[in-house]
Design a protein around this nucleic acid. Sequence first.
RNA 1: GGGCAGGUACCCAAGUGGACAAAUGGGGCGGGCUGUAAACCCGCAGCGGUAACGCUUCGGAGGUUCGAAUCCUUCCCUGCCCA
Length: 414
Amino acid sequence: MNSNIYDILKERGFIAQVSDEDALRRMLGGNPITFYVGFDSTATSLHAGSLVPIMVMKHLQQAGHRPIAIVGGGTTMVGDPSGKTEMRKMLSEDAIRKNGQAIHAQLDRYLHFDGKKSLALDNADWLLPLNYVEFLREIGRHFSVNRMLAAEAYKMRLEKGLSFIEFNYQLLQAYDYLHLYQKYGCSLQMGGDDQWGNILAGTDLIRRVEGAKVEAMTFPLLTTASGAKMGKTAYGTIWLDPSLLKPYDFYQYWVNCDDRDVGRFLKLYTFLPLAEIKQLEALKGSDIRKAKQALASEATSITHGEKAAKETQVSASTAFGTGEGKSGRDLAAMPSTTISRERLTGGINPAELFTEIGLSSSRGEAKRLIKQDGLYVNDKQIKSLNQQLNEADLTPNGILLRAGKKKYHRIIVK
RNA sequence: GGGCAGGUACCCAAGUGGACAAAUGGGGCGGGCUGUAAACCCGCAGCGGUAACGCUUCGGAGGUUCGAAUCCUUCCCUGCCCA
């Protein structure tokens, strides 16, 4: 009874809105369908915020349905104003193309595009050749400006200004859906809840042009319990690309999540069965860490592979593990900088070194941190501004620098 | 094209000739408490300097003045209203 993938998605908290729940459940419970999700080519990598659509795609793929991942090479040229307070700066065509390629490569790790059971397309392919007047006559006439203006998604922009180019975004996205319907029989589009209006514009367009009924589904826009957007932290964005964010730090992101988020995240970002999640959720007090570790290692495994997940878990537990000396901290995962022996012999001002390696943004800040007892050498606080680093600080592992509680950097001397 | 209102630090937003490196708040950072959590408490806040102090900042460029984020000129940008 609960084998319908629709119910599973619902239970795991993936669904914000759907066009027609009964129809969609029937569809997803029946023969394989083709569905699509669009990704903006606004950056060179996806980040944790995109994991929800990715997870949904994987779920549906496992249930036998066919995913199409659209990279928005065409739509990104225009820029989606939905829910935005101001216009995004324009990206060059070249940047958009490069971003799109990078994103396709990333999505491939999750969805394994083969061109048949799993497709990766770029909407630039059919949007860029469009003829303006023709497009207006064939597609534009189906859109009511009145309705678009009434949409919640544009409300903010109506107060602050909305340019014509952005106003067209919805038409292009709707056209995407139509195109995919005609060419690939795509009958479900999904996206973030802010895309609801754009997605419905697509189902409407298909109804008007083809007289067919297709479906729409959106995912909730997630924030952490403390209100932050998914995938952003003080240290930066939680990229999915290991060259932009080490698997170790990716893992740390999940372990460091708010207690209140663990259950929700386990359902969304892992494939653990609900029964198991229920048990993890029931943990109390410091045992919650176990649930967080499960979350982190599953999520890391999905994105970076099982091997990387194991490694990061080991290094994390040695670094933060209870009691025993800190010597076991994972040196390999730690960023490092090499300096010359002569330099060390001459004595180095810590403020200078911390700034040089990026643990502080300026010498002034480094000094401030020292005054606040926030800088450490080999886990010992730097007590005075005059303190110099020299060979006495050199350990077999180099010199371990630390700013605050969690930011480490290793100095290798050669 | 015309009228009006604006453009201040990461964000919101005060300040309208000197005491402004720039209020308050949010966010951030450090410390404490803890469970690598939350909440809470204390502290920090351009850059250089132990400091005195110096240098650079309030959309851009010029100017007035002993002295400008604050006044003038001009340019750019944003919003509202009118065409």
